[in-house]
Amino acid sequence: MVRMVTATELRPDTYAWPVEAERLEVKAGRRHLAVNGLDLRLGTGVHGLLGPNGAGKTTLMRALSTVHRPSGGRLTLLGTDATESRSLRPLRRRLGYLPQHFGFYPRFTVREYVEYMAWLREMPKAAIPGAVQRAVERVGLTDRADSRLKSLSGGMLRRAGIAQAIVNDPALLLLDEPTVGLDPEQRVDFRTLLRELGAESCVVVSTHLVEDVVAACSNVVLMDQGKLVWQGLPADLTRFGEQGGTGDSAAERGYTTLLASHRSAK
């Protein structure tokens, strides 16, 4: 079957940045401002979101996925105002999201689960079976496609989660700790997949593993206490590490150096 390219796909983007945040504030719980005045612009490519625990990474991911409404500032996703509930539905068709703690229905098979998520994202009925097969193949779960989710290992579940996030070819893909539970070989495969995805869309990967960011990301975003600390190339992060800092690799030392200098500057 030949897939027809639709007019929407060929239409040029009318926005400069897939993600644009200005003085963004997002609450975690009722009071705590976990994202507190964040300015951020992300283009096409793979962006590694780094930061210590409590930096506000997961809260930021929830705001980018439109699950949480920002409490202040501006957030524009794919050219759409994401603080406006009215415009969410068409925007959400173009998003893919893997939460950090992603729940699932244990009785579903991998295929049924990815199909269900494609349906929730309003993919055209005729396109779903092909898209599901492709997503499952891309994460390397072809031979387990018809196994129940409850029978899968942690790493396989994570890959099923990635498959549901990419099934609709999202223009903005958000992955919160996607490499948790993957073994080293799967992690290498996953990085290849990330680079492929980042060629055409804006991919944001939140992780605590500096090595993942250096290996697979085209851009590093460093956050601390709800604010942007530093944004740049992985190579620059590594260069900061040559000046000292603590960690096993140059990139890790760069990470700790940047964080320490940001904290002492305040």
Partner: peptide, 15 residues
Amino acid sequence: SDPAWEITAGTSRAG
């Protein structure tokens, strides 16, 4: 009661 709550809440059919 809905384990996939967060993953479905951000989809277009949610709401």
